Amino acid sequence: MGRWGITLPLTGVPVLDHRALVAELAGLGYTDVWSAETAGTDAFTPLALAAQWSDRVRLGTAIAPVYTRGPATLAMTAATLAEVSGGRFVLGIGSSSPAIVERWNGVPFHEPFKRTRDTLRFLKAALTGEKVSEEYETFTVRGFKLERAPAHPVPIMLAALRPGMLRLAGREADGAITNWLGAADVPKVRAEMGGGELAARIFVCPTEDADAARALGRMLISTYLTVPAYAAFHDWLGRGEALRPMHEAWASGDRRGAGALIPDDVVDALIVHGGVDRCRARVAEYAANGVDTPVIALLPTGGDQLDLVRALAPGA
């Protein structure tokens, strides 16, 4: 295997309780720790701690929204993480979603492609230590310069689902971060992106209870894939007709019934489940199909999550 990542913090586990696990990760074969940012921890604080608990794993945000922090604040935060990690930090940015940006943070979710593109271009300049005065299409920066530029280059990756953002990631960023796709979908995404690193967050539910795994998967799929960007992504991937009943039920207000209408084969494509050996093999399929950095997102099964992370390691 090449890279093998884990999403931290784990669901329901306090941030500080990850210290011993993070110290073990590199020895287990994990190369990466990636954070997330929705309504739990922020994307950066857990990584700053992990940088002190391990001097080997790479650390990345997947992702930090481009709307909820100003461009200069993003640059300062990235520079700080690069410093405290000794150059092991990757900044993953993306548009996020209308719920997170507008409903929770009170920021208009306007022209997400352009805002992401403009933020990428600003950060590429600012993180070199250059003084930036620029009128971008979606914001203007006048006279910003980092007091201390990072000693090591900070790779920037873009959250990307469909062709436009995937091409932007391949053309101007250091790579793309994607999720909610099956292993068989990877070649289509890889081909659209072209060059650069491709990371994918893969939802893993290590349990032999297929009914329980599928029930959890249906709940998550109906919540995420009804977001317009994800709905369009799966239309592009070819699942539009299979997911149409779910979308119709959701639109009518039948949220509970929507999940029940997701076919088993869709759930099984998007949620890795089964025993730990099978799950590890399924994650490896993503890598074989073109994902450079598979990143496990562990779904709760009732088992000890720290032990499950150990069991899912590539060298286990």
Rank of each mutant, 00 (worst) to 15 (best):
M1Y: 03
L8S: 06
L10F: 07
V13H: 12
A20T: 10
V22R: 10
V22L: 09
E24F: 08
L28T: 04
S35P: 09
S35I: 06
A36G: 14
A36I: 10
E37C: 03
T38E: 03
A39Y: 15
A39I: 11
G40L: 14
T41W: 15
T41F: 15
D42G: 15
P46K: 04
P46Q: 09
A51M: 03
Q52M: 13
V57N: 02
R58K: 13
T61A: 09
T61L: 11
Y67T: 07
R69V: 12
R69D: 06
P71R: 05
P71S: 05
A72G: 09
T77F: 01
T77Q: 15
T80Y: 13
T80R: 07
L81F: 10
A82H: 10
E83Y: 13
S85C: 08
G86K: 00
G86M: 03
G87S: 08
G87R: 08
I93A: 06
S95P: 11
S97A: 13
P98E: 10
E102N: 12
F109H: 08
E111L: 05
P112F: 10
F113S: 10
K114R: 15
R115F: 04
T116K: 02
T116C: 05
F122Y: 13
K124L: 12
E130N: 07
K131F: 06
T138M: 14
K145C: 12
E147Q: 13
P150T: 01
P153N: 09
V154T: 02
A159H: 04
L168T: 01
E172A: 11
D174M: 07
A176Y: 00
I177R: 00
N179A: 12
L181E: 00
L181C: 15
A183L: 14
D185K: 05
K188I: 00
A191L: 03
E192T: 14
G194Q: 02
G195L: 04
E197Q: 11
L198P: 01
A199M: 13
R201T: 12
R201A: 10
F203D: 01
T207F: 11
A212E: 10
R214V: 08
R214P: 04
L220M: 12
I221N: 01
T223I: 01
T226M: 11
P228F: 09
H234N: 03
L237M: 14
G238H: 06
R239S: 09
G240T: 03
A242M: 07
R244L: 14
R244E: 14
P245F: 11
A251S: 14
S252E: 10
G253S: 06
D254Q: 11
G259D: 01
A260D: 13
I262E: 01
D264E: 13
D264A: 15
V266D: 03
H273P: 00
G275C: 06
D277P: 02
C279H: 08
C279I: 07
A284S: 11
T293Q: 11
T293E: 05
P294I: 10
V295R: 04
V295K: 08
A297Q: 13
A297H: 14
L298Q: 04
P300K: 08
T301R: 11
Q305A: 15
D307T: 07
D307N: 13
L308K: 02
V309G: 08
A311H: 05
